[in-house]
């Protein structure tokens, strides 16, 4: 993989995510719903779009109630959905100009997903789940197995590599999903309410994993509506009706995540 984790902070690093004037709307005419709109243009009701930079190594929590547009933002950031207008640069690449084939390559190489509902492939062992993105990337079987096992060990599930989703608890399933997301060493980890379906103990386990990943330099964007979860992030964005209404930095980009830092910064 090309993404060497660089602990030094360059003078002007290329942001991992740069979106400018991004809008997403559904429907036509009067029935148009703007899921992402940003501030209105001065003097009109036209949406100007959301603009946002996320730097390498940052840990961003996007908060908002349901319908605030946070999931739409997440889908666009993950190249699962296309914006109605605006530009999206992922790792310096303008995603808007890519075709379906190239998009699948981007999803495979640059993004790791963790979903609220785990989204594991049914009837497939944990090891095969984690191997899947590597298989799509064309990694050879032996190498694939080695890396998948390493990722599973990292999330503490090395013993359960042969288990299928229905033989794993919710927390374990989500840890498999985390292993699957990190196995390709992507530039960006996208987590959509990763703890939404988990009990408090599993929540702590999964968040600890994500904190650990960020501590080793991985950029994380996490969507949540729980303050407890947002406490783990270095930067918290609040979305209301498709607009960013607050942007709070809780810890420096180049430091460890707040929960892991010795000071134990509280929001």
């Amino acid at each position: 993989m090309r993404h060497v984790i660089d602990k030094r902070v360059p003078a002007h690093p290329v942001p991992v995510i740069r979106i400018s004037r991004l809008t997403k709307s559904y429907g036509h005419g009067d029935a148009t719903v703007h899921a992402l709109r940003g501030p209105s243009r001065p003097g009109t009701d036209e949406p100007e779009g959301v603009s946002l930079d996320i730097e390498q190594g940052d840990y961003v929590a996007v908060m908002g109630s349901s319908g605030s547009g946070k999931s739409t933002l997440m889908n666009i950031l993950g190249c699962l959905d296309v914006p109605t207008s605006g530009r999206y640069l992922l790792d310096g690449i303008d995603v808007g100009h890519l075709d379906e084939q190239q998009l699948s390559l981007v999803r495979n190489r640059k993004i790791g997903f963790v979903f609220q509902s785990f989204n594991l492939v049914p009837r497939t062992t944990a090891l095969a789940q984690v191997e899947l993105p590597l298989a799509y990337a064309g990694v050879r079987a032996a190498e694939r197995r080695r890396r998948a096992m390493a990722a599973l060990s990292l999330v503490g599930l090395g013993e359960r590599a042969g288990h299928k989703p229905n033989q794993l608890s919710g927390g374990q399933q989500q840890r498999v999903a985390v292993a699957r997301a990190l196995v390709t060493a992507p530039a960006l980890l996208l987590a959509d309410e990763p703890t939404g379906n988990l009990d408090s103990r599993s929540t702590e386990e999964v968040l600890a994993l994500i904190d650990g990943l960020n501590a080793t330099g991985r950029t994380v964007v996490l969507i949540t509506h729980e303050d407890e979860v947002a406490r783990h992030a270095k930067r918290v964005l609040r979305l209301v009706d498709g607009q960013i209404v607050s942007d709070v930095r809780q810890a420096p980009v180049d430091g460890p995540p707040p929960v892991l830092s010795p000071a134990g910064v509280m929001a």
Binding site: L80, Q101, L105, R107, N108
Partner: peptide
């Protein structure tokens, strides 16, 4: 899911 993982 497979597409999200980058299946062409």
């Amino acid at each position: 899911i497979r597409k999200a993982l980058g299946a062409p």
